[in-house]
Computed example of a mutant assay.
Amino acid sequence: MALPIRPTHQTYDIVVIGGAMMGSAVAWWCARNPDFQGRILVIEADPTFEHAATSLTNSCIRQQFGTAVNIQISQFGAMFIDRFKEFMEDDSAPDIPIQSFGYMYLADNDSFAETLANSQLLQASLGAGTQMLSPAKLAAAYPFYNLDGIIAASHNPVNEGYFDGGTIFDWLRKKGGQLGVERIHNRATGLRLGANKVTHVALASGESISCGAVVNCAGTRGAEISAMIDAPLPIEPRLRYTYVFEAETPLPRDLPLTIDPSGIHVRSDGRYYMAGAAPDDDHPRDPDDFAMDHNLWEDKVWPALAHRIPAFERIKLRNTWAGHYDYNTLDQNAVLGPHPEVRNFHFCNGFSGHGLQQSPAVGRGLSELLIYGAYRSLDLTALGYERIRANAALTERAVI
């Protein structure tokens, strides 16, 4: 059913700009909280979500991060997925299993092997099941790898792998609507400020909506929205390519999401396999640029796959697409929470490919800020905007 263009009311307590996974998660978490009795409006420029990162994601989750806050965010995400029916409070909600084939990071140099080992210690201290594997152990468990040059690996087979993010997204929108969340097909064109807060959101259709708070969930256009309050964001669209292929000789077991030193990653995808790669020239793109580089498959991706997994010398490409990361050039980490001065403007931007798996914890955290003025469950302060202004990176090295 098509969304209406114009809002029902002139005033909303919370206006969410961007209605994909993050915007839907924020709106749902707020609406389900009995302590919130206000109105929520979600503004979505493209309700088909044809080019949204939510639609073009590879839909995976992992705990193998190098910062504690990201590990904890994904741990809650895994728990949310596991208890999805309970969170939806609806017996008709589906079970959403995680296909836990895990992520497999391969190291071909001492520096990266040390990074993996240090990260494993951090992950294990927080309860993750990550293990370091020697080449011998790796070869015994996964004999289909060519381990030439590989000196170590990191793998976590618990709550890491693929999940059905599309179904979760559908249910967040559905349940949000049942709880009173209003969604419109429109675009925010300006923000009016007064007394150090956003007082109105201007719409492309001509209306000016008064608001109690604004949440910027605009994905690759997040920097455009924050510029409306003169708040620079180091976030830009970056192209990422996905390839789905069939192997003439399938592997004897599920393939972990393998991050090869070449920069290519590949995993099982049902009876097929899914690989991903960045362009060789990884520069910012226009938000509407989704052009494929068809030479990259033949020149880089397929050779890298066949080198690491010789069975992939005989494969048939079945599907390809291009998507975008809302890439944070400072530290590849999310920017969350209120602006230091314009306190009712909240950031929810720059996930750099982690957004789908982080949406449960981020939606919960921002709802707590919006309703109570502080984080109550998981402290996400380290991901605040202050570090952007101070140019103080919280670098996440585990970016794919």
Rank of each mutant, 00 (worst) to 15 (best):
C60F: 02
C60Y: 00
R62T: 05
Q63W: 06
Q63S: 01
Q64T: 06
F65M: 08
F65A: 10
G66E: 09
T67Q: 15
A68C: 11
I71G: 04
I71H: 01
I71L: 07
Q72G: 10
S74D: 10
Q75R: 06
Q75T: 03
F76G: 00
A78G: 10
A78I: 04
M79G: 00
I81M: 11
R83P: 09
F84H: 03
F84V: 08
K85T: 15
K85P: 15
K85V: 15
E86H: 13
F87V: 10
M88N: 12
E89S: 14
E89V: 07
S92C: 14
S92N: 13
A93R: 06
P94T: 03
D95V: 13
I98G: 02
S100Y: 02
Y103T: 03
M104H: 05
M104R: 07
M104S: 05
L106N: 05
L106P: 04
A107D: 02
N109I: 00
D110N: 10
D110M: 08
D110T: 13
S111N: 12
S111W: 12
E114V: 02
A117I: 01
N118L: 11
S119P: 04
L121C: 06
L121W: 03
L122S: 01
Q123A: 08
A124K: 14
S125R: 03
S125T: 06
L126R: 09
G129N: 13
